[in-house]
Design a protein around this nucleic acid. Structure first.
Length: 280
DNA sequence: CCCGGAACCTGAAGGC
DNA sequence: TGCCTTCAGGTTCCGG
């Protein structure tokens, strides 16, 4: 499930392999992937355009085009982008981008939840996202201020793309474990010290994920077909019943907002504070 | 404004 | 062995 580290890995792998190339044809096997216009208009708008660079915003991959347009892709649950020869005939390839050097870029997506846009201004798609968690401008003060305005469970707030961009289920669970915070704690109930610990844990979890080239939990694979290795370093995510690496207590799984949340009940006790942190 | 839940999807896994 | 149900979760939309 591509989150920030997985999309960043895709961006880094793909950038040298497709930058400078142009689209010469498009095969759309699942037209509903196209978001803001008809599949035919999307195809005609893209053919002839040249890729001049790749950006990432949250979990969105942005292909900057020479015209100033942006081709934006979101993998959602099961999407991956592949450049390996033969990917065109994979039964789960939903879109084939044919490039001017004879190579292909394939959008493989078994569950068909992935989406893409061709827009004049990338802000039309990514404009409502919260700040990038790894930007140097994203300080602990900004983090505390943004999560401290919400009363929802901290797990849900961490995964809210409008609060912070790029964090999903896996890395939220890892960050909360590293910070020793129960996922159901109301976000506005964390102490300043807890918010500081969570900020550091979140950034470390994401950086570690990037260093490992992402986590191959389900369908995720890198553009060259390799898998990521971050899942091996996960301490709680997708480890229900396994002993906590710190204390040996079995990892539990509870649903929060229809999502599985994995945590250690001993290392992440639910201790609600009496008074709220000072706001403003 | 803010919260929680349904819908979109299909392969994998578990139950009987 | 095989059918059926449940689960997986990022995002958007909707109702309270």
């Amino acid at each position: 499930m591509p989150e920030l580290p997985e999309v960043e890995t895709i961006r880094r792998d793909l950038s040298p392999r497709i930058t400078g190339k142009s689209f010469v044809a498009l095969t759309l096997n699942w037209p509903k992937t196209v978001q803001n216009q008809s599949a035919e208009a999307f195809k005609q708008g893209l053919i002839g355009q040249t890729i001049c660079g790749l950006d990432r915003r949250g979990k969105y991959l942005i292909l900057r085009l020479a015209s100033g347009d942006s081709l934006i892709l979101h993998m959602r649950m099961s999407g991956s982008l592949l450049v390996e020869p033969g990917c065109e005939s994979d039964p789960y390839t939903r879109t084939v981008f044919h490039l001017d050097d004879g190579s292909s870029l394939c959008f493989r997506d078994p569950r068909k939840l992935g989406v893409m846009w061709l827009v004049k201004d990338a802000g039309e798609v990514v404009g409502k996202l919260g700040p990038e968690p790894l930007d140097s401008s994203f300080t602990v003060a900004i983090f505390g201020e943004r999560i401290g305005r919400r009363s929802a469970p901290i797990k849900a707030v961490l995964c809210d793309q409008g609060i912070i961009a790029g964090i999903g289920n896996m890395y939220a669970d890892e960050a909360l474990f590293a910070a020793g915070i129960h996922p159901l704690r109301p976000a506005d109930n964390l102490s300043n010290g807890e918010a500081e610990r969570l900020y550091a844990a979140m950034r470390q979890a994401l950086e570690r994920g990037i260093d490992c080239c992402g986590a191959s939990i389900s369908d995720y694979q890198r553009p060259g077909g390799q898998t990521g290795t971050a899942q091996a370093a996960f301490k709680v995510a997708h480890r229900k019943g396994q002993p906590c690496p710190s204390c040996g207590t079995p990892i539990e799984r509870i649903p929060i907002r229809q999502r599985g949340s994995y945590f250690c009940p001993r290392c992440q006790p639910y201790r609600k504070r009496q008074s709220k942190r000072n706001k403003s």
